[in-house]
Every structure is written in C-alpha cells, then in structure tokens.
Design a protein around this nucleic acid. Sequence first.
DNA 1: CGCGCCATTGACTCTGGTCAACGCTAGTGG
DNA 2: CCACTAGCGTTGACCAGAGTCAATGGCGCG
Lengths: 249, 249
Amino acid sequence: MSIVMPDSIRLGRECSQPKHDPAFGACAGCAVRELSVCGVLVPAEINEFEKLSRSTDFEARSTLFTEDEPATQIFNITQGVVRLYKLLRDGRRQIVGFALPGDFLGLALQDDYSVSADAVTQVTACRFQRNAFTQFLDVHPLMMRRLHEMASHELSLAQDQMVLLGRHNADERLALFLLALSERYIRIGESGVNVQLPMSRQDIADYLGLTIETVSRTFSRLAKAKLIVVVPDGVRLLETEGLRQLANG
Amino acid sequence: MSIVMPDSIRLGRECSQPKHDPAFGACAGCAVRELSVCGVLVPAEINEFEKLSRSTDFEARSTLFTEDEPATQIFNITQGVVRLYKLLRDGRRQIVGFALPGDFLGLALQDDYSVSADAVTQVTACRFQRNAFTQFLDVHPLMMRRLHEMASHELSLAQDQMVLLGRHNADERLALFLLALSERYIRIGESGVNVQLPMSRQDIADYLGLTIETVSRTFSRLAKAKLIVVVPDGVRLLETEGLRQLANG
DNA sequence: CGCGCCATTGACTCTGGTCAACGCTAGTGG
DNA sequence: CCACTAGCGTTGACCAGAGTCAATGGCGCG
C-alpha cells in the first residue's frame, strides 16, 4: 500500500507553498510524516511531540549549523534541499550527503555536529531542542528504535558512497548519483524521470569527489550517449536501465 | 581516569592467548567490556546479558558473514581484526572498515547485512542471536541508547572516510590511515607507535581507494621522508606531528 | 544593456593506474 | 639440509583518466 503524496512536498526551488495554518496542527498536514521518525507515533503522541517542535524557514544558502559547534538543535526537513559537508583547512570540501524532505539532521544525538549543513534551496524544517528531544525519546522507546533504524540506514548509504568514491570512475559516479536521487524523489512523491537538480555543479562535484569540469563533461557524455537529457535545473532520465548498466561497470 | 588494559587484547597475529575459563564469567575477564556496548550494564545485567552470547573463534581468512544474507547474528569482537567490505560484480572491492577488539558488527539491527565481513587474523567474538539481542534491548533502554551512540560514531567515521576518499591524495590517505589506526590501538591498549598492520597491502589499497602499487610506493615515500619505518608486519611512526601535517594538506 | 555567475569546452598536465620484472620469505619436498 | 616454488611486496616504465588552466557561452539581474 503506497501513500498518496500531496504536492506539498517541495524541493524549494519554486517557493510557492503556503505557510502552515497554525490553527491546524502542523504535523497533521505534514506530507513527510510517515517517512520520518514521526511515523511510529500514534495521534496522541504526535500532539505531544508537536509541542516540542517549531517550524523554521531557511533561505537558500543560509546555514543550519556548522561542524564542531554544539549540537543544541535537531531538524526534520519538510521542504527543500540541504547539503551536508566537511571542509578541510585548505578549502577542499566533501559533501557527505544531500538532505531531502523527510530526512533528519542531528539524529546522531552527539554533543557536537559532525558536519556542516546549509540550505541549497529555500528550506522548511521542524526544529527541536536536543534536550527536549532526547527526553521525549526516554519515554518513547519505539521512537528511539526508529531513530536507530534511520541512523543505520544512513550508515548503509555512507558505505555505498564509500564504494562510489573509492572504486567507481566518473561516469559510474554520476550515473549512480542520478539513479539514487531519482529513487529518493519517487519516495517523496516527486518525478523520478525529470530529476530536479537544485544543487550546483560544484556541489555535485564535491559530493562525487570530482571537479566541476569533470562533472560537466560527464553530463555531456551521458547526454551524447542518449542516457539523459540535460534540461534547465535538472536532467531527464531517458534510459534508467542503460544508466544502471553503466553504473555497475 | 584511564583504564589499565590487560594485555589480553590481542590483534590475533601471534595467536597465543588462552581460551576463556568457562567457570569464570567470560564477560568478567573481558578486556574490551568497558569499550563496548556492555560498558553500560551493571554486574547483574552483565550476567543476564552473558547468557545470550557465545564466544566463537574464527580462523584467519574465514568468513563471519556475507553482504545481503539475513542478519541472524551479531558479533562483538574481543580479539583479532576483521575486514568489512563490499564487492562489485566485476570484482572491485571497497573495504569500508576494519573492526578491532571492542567493535560491534551488526549494530544496525537490519534484516540483512549491508557488508561482508571476514577475519584478517585469528578472531574471537561474542556472538548473539539477533532476536535475543533485540529482546534484551527492549528491556534495557540504556543499552539501546548506547547502541545508537555507537552507530552514530560509526556514521561519523564513515563521513571522515568519505572525505579521505573524495578529497585526499595518496600520501594524505596513507598518513590518515596510519594515524587513525594508531589512535585506535592506543584506545585498546596496544602500541600507537609500533603500529601493527595485520592486513595485506591489497586490503589497505581497497580501504584507501588505491592500488597495491600506489600503497607500496606511498609507504616507501613516507619512509624516505623519515616519517615512518616499515617493519615486518607493520610500521613504526617516527613523526606523528609530521604525519598529521602531511595528512591535512 | 551590461555585468557577473555558472556551466561548458578545449588544451595540456600530472597523479595514480597498468603492466611487467624482480626480490624476499615461508613452506614443501627431494 | 637445501633447492624449488608460490605468494606478497617493491620498483620501474609507460599510460590514461581526471585535474588544471583558460577561453567562451548563456542566463538572470540590476
């Protein structure tokens, strides 16, 4: 049984969605609730949980938090795209992930953030104080378990990314990236064929361990091979099967 | 306050440690207890917990589990070194981590293993059935929390490894690897200066996203620069500060 | 209309990969 | 006891994929 996704999940580019009606519980209308930690809660618990959170907007390019600063807050993205990254002293950057609606930032519950996060598009998130959040977890073990599941899933994705970075060439990296993004979009009710790319080529390069020029050339190569079409703000996947074949060598 | 480590933590190479005395609770004499999940348990709980586990030995090169097979068992390494990896269809391999004494395998509690694991050296591990383990967690929320902490730590390490694979050159990768290993050895009471390398050059290459030849050349280069000395079965770190400087560009 | 930013493309470089030879050591068998 | 062999590691010569540097194009915004 699949959940019909209202079109209120937005990647943030067009910025046209209405604000939450405060008279109507924000969580009740939340399109990503079932996909996120909140999914394990029954309605009564949701109400209690909702009191801990505050919906917060971030402009594109603004910072949610920075690596090594105290992790006082926890975020559940409801709209928009966030990039998570680490910087080296000399300016090199590695993006370790892109967070989409339904994704949770700070689920490690550590004292300090292990990465920096900033908004690629306009972003809306449910914001929690870590203290309040962990106290809630203490009395809702099911949610603790769900959080652990989500962290484990993150770990598994991180392992996949290590394989990508360590053992795949440029073509394979980009193909894997596009396929993975496509599937995530499908999960949140967006098109998996017309794949939106709100992040810049530089962001993609820093995610795939490449340079911007190589990313650009690789887009062109995949387009020439008729696997994709590069369109404004994204790509259209023409042959997912061909991409999959390319991706796996 | 640091814990004095008995020398019963072994990396497995010399294979000289005595078997656990079954009359004496295995956990009571466990050198890595404080470092692992078990550390949060009080003595009474330890006894209960111990009943769920069985100490199991693995020969060097034997398999603990394989990617995608059902994750029926969970392992807590007490001796030896395990490599965790993913294989591509064409034989390429990416090692996503080396597990040392105190490390936990299967802490994601997922239905299927996300990676394969085999013993680099002779290995001893506490083995749990996943069902029994998760039932124990249901009534010991503190342990659930600890498990989540460990998973979060793993995630953080995975992010570091993504930076290594995506944005560091060969010299930096090897330096980072040696420094990280050194610190892990110190944590478990082994020498952080004479760093044991029980894994092969190929293993190191597959961990660092390099080839065996590049790893070998890089060892030689670091040795020529007087940062390390290559010795049988390991290296001696001569200048950790120099290594650190090299590692960070 | 013009400026600036981002993306693309080309020419060239260079780091790390590939292929091949060689050495060392441990294990085996004459 | 020593010769032979197999496997791992090291080194050299050469190659190629991705990086660097530079020029150009396209689009949005003031």
